[in-house]
Design a protein around this nucleic acid. Structure first.
Lengths: 199, 199
DNA sequence: GGTGTTACGTTTAGGGCTAAATGAAGGCCT
DNA sequence: AGGCCTTCATTTAGCCCTAAACGTAACACC
């Protein structure tokens, strides 16, 4: 028994009762929530409809961006650093502290990102005048040029990817995501990255 | 002078014209889109309102989940593997291929995940009967127990995080995310993970 | 004016992932 | 039959990140 397993999962195929092999499709949030309810009645599955697609979309967007950038010989992390500096406007300088906050990564990661970018001549690093042990990072000409050469490609590509939604839907989605994000940030303690707190 | 730097960025502070230091706040998608428009008029910024908050939310959810799981001595990647198997129902067995599809990671990553989990006694790996070079992965008792002990914690926590939205908003958001996800998957070539295609 | 604290950035150890190279087993075609 | 191509999983090299340990430098307080 057991036909050699169709090479490609056929959508809308015979949805068997057991649901053991997940009939076909891509394991949507709906499938996952239903599976938990079937396997462990009472599992708190209410968040799945939101968290799972967000996670999957972020993965798809991220993977796609990486591939687009690989053609240009950059990696996402470096372009993110350069973009933050570029967006900040002339003189394209920010403290490492500020960079970390805007990129949502740890101080250690910032150190490494900046070190890599500096090694490639995309940014320079100078001791901050004002405050004690701070470091100011500035975009070089090469870094500036690299942003100009790639950012439209990345953003244009992503605009295509979300173009399946009507402008109305896009606006609605943006609004809801903003509300959720603001609320989640508040619950997680706003600025603090590395701490949840109850211990 | 110079009060030791307010520990917390004050929101709604004096928003200076130059916008160079981004007054305060957390660099919302709106800020980012406005910054591009200011710095490079014509930059295709329409996707930012959607892609950026999705990315940030995924990061916040992911970081938080990692911290919750660290207390239980597991990592997110391993729990993801175990959860997929657990949800599939008895006999808690799936092929590595299927695991990769459901977790959206490359075959190499699956090999490593399974190897780690096997080393810890959470799953077993046996050659697939039916097809040639396939491998079937099965949850062990220890793996099953670990899921039971942690999944409610993780999902409950995430339910809290999204509870700031009204049930209506949650339903609306879920719906929009589903539509977007389905469309993006279609555009990226559905199942294929590692390929965008135009070369 | 010492001394402890606090605030920084950096370094290190280790984990996880991707992409590409590798190896092995069928299937297909002539 | 033999050769080629395809399909799997695994291995390897390299990247990026987190968490924690470090090393400093400025304050603050007594």
């Amino acid at each position: 028994m057991n036909p050699p397993l169709p090479r490609r999962t056929e959508r809308g195929g015979a949805r068997r009762g057991g649901a053991d092999q997940a009939g076909g499709a891509d394991q949507t949030a709906r499938d996952i929530a239903a599976a938990w309810e079937r396997e462990r009645p009472g599992t708190p599955a209410t968040s799945i409809g939101i968290v799972t697609p967000i996670w999957q979309l972020a993965k798809l967007f991220g993977d796609d961006r990486r591939r687009v950038l690989a053609r240009a010989g950059v990696d996402s992390a470096t372009l993110d650093l350069l973009s933050v500096l570029r967006r900040s406007g002339a003189p394209y300088t920010l403290s490492t502290r500020e960079l970390g906050r805007r990129s949502m990564i740890t101080p250690g990661a910032i150190s490494q990102r900046v070190a890599r970018a500096e090694r490639e001549g995309l940014v320079t690093r100078v001791p901050g005048e004002g405050r004690p042990r701070t470091v100011q990072v500035t975009l070089t000409r090469a870094g500036h040029d690299l942003v100009e050469a790639t950012v439209d490609q990345v953003l244009g590509r992503e605009a295509d990817l979300v173009s399946g939604l009507t402008p109305d839907q896009q606006a609605q989605l943006t609004e809801l995501l903003d509300v959720l994000l603001a609320d989640v940030q508040r619950r997680l303690g706003d600025g603090r990255l590395t701490q949840v707190g109850y211990d």
